[in-house]
Write a protein that binds this DNA or RNA. Structure first.
Lengths: 142, 142
DNA sequence: AATAAAATAGTAATAGTTACTGTTTTATTA
DNA sequence: TAATAAAACAGTAACTATTACTATTTTATT
């Protein structure tokens, strides 16, 4: 049986994910951890992220074809991907477990779970959109 | 302005996607087209798939970290990924556009659409599961 | 302190996809 | 129908995200 051994790198990766509310990629985590451990290797970050996901201490988010993002909050919840800034943001909306049952009524297979990702423009980018619209108005008046 | 020119390879790729109801990857399409055009290049398949997606004639399906799958049916609908055989299967279930509006009520951003993928065991693999359970029963009795 | 297992850093390799380049097809004009 | 220009091509190189490998270091146990 393979027993888990303590690793300060793994601790640091987990602490990083618990501390931040964005959903960093392996690369972003790598950059952050390097401040404390300047010669941690990217492979170590990936290996430990995979381990933490297996242990259920961290959640992996597949975002289209881009790099995976990671979430320290393991409660099932949905995410929003902003098509402007590319940020991955938590959705303040209950996870709809009942969708599995609903789907199961239409489909003869065994529906166990689902992944959902919303797309659109985040509040910050909406704000910027409005500001630049106003700019256009102004220059039109002048 | 760049005008589109006819290409027999592109026609063949589109025909292939219209004809089959599985959801092949670029590689699987490449293999299929090679029967008719033995020296088509994989790059051509990718380039044309991207083009067809842009033209809205074909749909791209992101499946976790694996290769993308493609669907000749462009009507928005959900898919099911079997964790046994890995097949991507159409869900006979309406696309829930109202989920966008629902999400929008909780989230201050502009929710434009969503992607959902169901996971579980497909009917064929369920069948096999049942058969092997019966095998176990038999040997237990004998 | 000695030992064994696990984890590491660093590097090489892999999968999926895109970019580049010289040649061939397509479509338009002469 | 031949000449031309644009688009697409095949083939290959490059790229991004990730995993695998290896010799060394860290952790934990005896």
């Amino acid at each position: 049986m393979k027993t888990l051994k303590f690793s300060r790198q793994r601790e640091s990766i987990k602490a990083c994910l618990m501390a931040r509310s964005d959903h960093p990629t392996a690369d972003a985590i790598y950059a952050a951890i390097r401040e404390e451990y300047p010669n941690i290797s990217l492979g170590t970050v990936y290996r430990n992220l995979n381990l933490l996901v297996e242990l259920g201490e961290v959640q992996r988010l597949h975002c289209d074809n881009g790099p995976d993002h990671f979430d320290g909050d393991t409660a099932p919840h949905y995410h929003f991907l902003c098509r402007r800034c590319g940020r991955v943001i938590d959705m303040p909306m209950d996870h709809m477990d009942e969708l599995n049952a609903l789907a199961g009524r239409y489909y003869p297979g065994r529906v166990e779970n689902h992944a959902m990702l919303f797309y659109g423009v985040c509040p910050d980018c909406l704000e910027m959109e409005n500001l630049s619209l106003k700019e256009v108005d102004k220059s039109a008046v002048v």
